[in-house]
Nucleic acid binder design. Structure first.
Length: 629
RNA sequence: GGAGCUGUAGCUCAAUUGGUUAGAGCGCCGCCCUGUCACGGCGGAGGUUGCGGGUUCGAGCCCCGUCGGUUCCGCCA
């Protein structure tokens, strides 16, 4: 710290070797202990705390004035570093062997009583957000912000190092709307009446065009914007570490990102991160974990039971199997003691993610007290029972949940059940494991029943695997829906659904940290993709003409990835919400409660922008006059 | 858009089957206190139980509506 008129040292600096020196400190009153005579103050700054003492017998006027100090007053004081009295050292304080005997002080700013205490956990998040500048004074929040800085710095340093040599480039925030993906935030363009900028959902096109520009290695700590509903790990504006490089393969990306994440987590104090990360295909992730972002910190994997029930006479299983569906289960080890409430909750969860309404009750078998308990048991033959017990390793105290249906939704449902059981059993509660994982070979396309068309799973610039490239021609407009249902039944006819992308996600403990892909760099292939996605040639020209044209001027093969910085910091900090690692986050409705954004716009502002709001506030009651509050 | 949880003093929470004047801790204010470190002691202030309606002799508690918060589903290329 550089000494200046406010202070010669910070509050976590003075040690016994400073005894005898006259020092000046500035900071906040963390607590005041007024004994009537002698008064103690813990003075706090961002580095730590130092006890200061006011002694009436040495400086009567100063001591008298100190009676009026209250918590969170900002003061500047001068005094002599002294050894504490015998037996009064405080081992909880780094500066606990010394204290400052104050000769004089100034109140720089008096504090009113705070709306909440800084030393007590607060459950009212509204209040925390309204007074965020006070909330951030608390050590935990202060630590989180500084941790975030360290992690970002580690990322910058790693990518900028001589060895990696990436170039940080800023791309526009005022950008252009794209048809695919999330809802855009729009900004009216005053100089172009009737037109709008869109805030970027990601710098995707810009970074690819930087590759065409010959930059070869680009990164950016990029703010991204998506106007969708919020979650604990989703804010309307968030930060990505955005990376793109030319003349590389996915192996280069894996190696780079593994090194990068290791550096970032090490900066946060997590030292044991073995490389390389394990890899799993999307298909296997779905098969075993029912998720494209598996949490591998615990077992209870999904077991396929099609062979066990291949000859089953049980109607539901029979029909499912005959229609190309699957029967699968999850053995929740040691969860036979499930409560009624938990069972109800599990059913809700299963229905939320697609268990058909007709299936009233998630099927189960539990083995408890040497007895098999199940509504289904009576439908199974002895061979089936024996095969089942063996296949899922059903032991005393276990409960197995079953789902029968199409492969993907069956896996998804069981995957959610698996996670919910783990949450109920608090399986990962005290785990410090960091299970990094690559998920690769994602499908390129998914058929949307809602839109009745094929959509890009990752984004429209994603490169199909070369061995699947020929399948791009299997899609012709009239047969798309038919192919989709064929794929859903696990049919083997050539289908757009079977095309794999050179796309990969990096996952940590069941959270997607980021994802990327190799890109299309050929204009004809890119045009073909847009065609499959149902973007008309006219729209292609209008919305993507620049990128299609760019790909005709010597575009290098390229690819990249984006990492969700907020989530990374959240996990590194051990927090459950990214709001805890953002200085000024928004609440569930996208409001920032401290400044009260978003706010209303003045009629003149709107007029300048050539826009008018069509919003009509709901009338409270018929005939009731609107009330000001 | 849907579901769960939730709303009581400045903060964190309590209040038996619906039953007297809605309590506690912390904080705040006043007085006392010269070695504390979450200092201590004594005293005090502070509440339209989110809001509106209903049931009841009686509602913080039950019912309906509404508003806010939060978690999840939908959504998030």
């Amino acid at each position: 710290m550089t000494a200046n008129i406010y202070r010669t040292h910070h509050c976590n600096e003075l040690r016994p070797e400073h005894i005898g020196q006259t020092v000046t400190l500035s900071g906040w009153v963390n607590s005041a202990r007024d004994h009537g005579g002698v008064i103690f103050i813990d003075l706090r700054d961002r580095e730590g705390m130092t006890q200061v003492v006011f002694r009436p017998e040495e400086n009567p006027e100063t001591a008298q004035a100190s009676h009026h100090l209250r918590d969170e007053d900002v003061i500047q004081l001068t005094g002599k570093v002294s050894k504490r009295l015998e037996g009064t050292d405080n081992t909880n304080l780094a500066t606990g062997q010394i204290e400052i005997v104050v000769s004089g002080f100034t109140v720089l700013n008096k504090s009113s009583v705070l709306p909440f205490q800084l030393d007590v956990e607060l459950s009212n998040e509204d209040l925390r957000l309204k007074y965020r500048y006070l909330d951030l004074r608390r050590p935990r929040m202060n630590r989180n912000l500084r941790l975030r800085h360290k992690i970002v710095k580690a990322a910058r340093d790693f990518l900028s190092s001589k060895e990696n040599d990436f170039v940080e480039v800023e791309t526009p925030i005022l950008s252009k709307s794209t048809p695919e993906g999330a809802r855009d935030f729009l900004v009216p363009a005053r100089l172009n009446p009737g037109k709008f900028y869109a805030l970027p959902q990601a710098p995707q096109q810009y970074k690819q065009l930087l590759m065409v520009a010959g930059l070869e290695k680009y990164f950016q700590i990029a703010r991204c914007f998506r106007d969708e509903d919020l979650r604990a790990d989703r804010q309307p504006e968030f930060t990505q570490i955005d990376i793109e490089a030319s003349f590389i393969t996915e192996e280069d990306i894996y190696r780079l990102v593994e090194g990068l994440l290791k550096e970032m987590f090490q900066a946060a104090g997590h030292m044991n991160i073995p490389l390389p990360f394990p890899r799993i295909t999307w298909k296997e992730a779905m098969d075993r974990y029912g998720s494209d972002k598996p949490d591998t910190r615990f077992g209870n994997e999904i077991t396929d039971l099609c062979d066990v029930f291949a000859k089953s006479e049980f109607k539901i299983f029979r029909n499912t199997l005959d229609n190309g569906g699957v029967v699968r289960g999850v053995n929740a080890k040691g969860f036979a003691g499930i409560t009624t409430g938990q069972m109800i909750r599990l059913n809700e969860v299963a229905h939320e993610v697609g268990l058909p309404k007709e299936v009233k009750q998630l099927a189960f078998i539990k083995y408890e007290g040497g007895e098999f308990k199940s509504p289904l048991w009576k439908f199974f033959t002895d061979e089936e029972k024996a095969a089942l017990i063996k296949k899922v390793n059903l032991e005393e105290g276990d409960i197995v949940f079953f789902v029968a249906g199409p492969w993907e939704s069956t896996c998804t449902i069981l995957g959610r059940v698996r996670l919910e059981v783990a949450a109920m059993m608090e399986t990962t509660k005290n785990s410090s494991a960091l299970n990094f994982l690559w998920v690769y070979d994602f499908p390129l396309l998914a058929f949307s029943e809602e839109d009745q068309k094929w959509n890009a799973v990752h984004h429209p610039f994603t490169r199909p695997k070369s061995e699947d490239m020929h399948l791009l021609d299997t899609g012709s407009a009239g047969t798309l829906a038919g192919q989709s249902s064929n794929a859903a039944k696990g049919g083997s006819a050539p289908s757009l659904a079977q095309i794999r992308a050179v796309a990969y996600d990096v996952v940590l403990n069941g959270t997607e940290l980021g994802g990327g892909s190799l890109r299309i760099h050929e204009s004809d292939l890119q045009a073909k993709m847009f065609g499959i996605l149902g973007v008309s040639e006219e729209d292609q020209k209008e919305m993507f003409g620049h990128i299609l044209e760019a790909f005709q001027f010597g575009a290098p093969p390229h690819g990249g990835l984006a990492l969700g910085l907020d989530r990374i910091v959240m996990l590194a900090a051990g927090e459950d919400s990214i709001r805890e690692v953002l200085a000024f986050p928004k609440n569930n409705r996208g409001q920032e409660l401290m400044t009260q954004s978003p706010g209303v716009a003045d009629f003149r502002q709107l007029r300048d922008l050539y826009i008018a709001s069509t919003f009509k506030p709901k009338a409270k009651e018929e005939g009731a006059a609107p009330q000001a509050n």
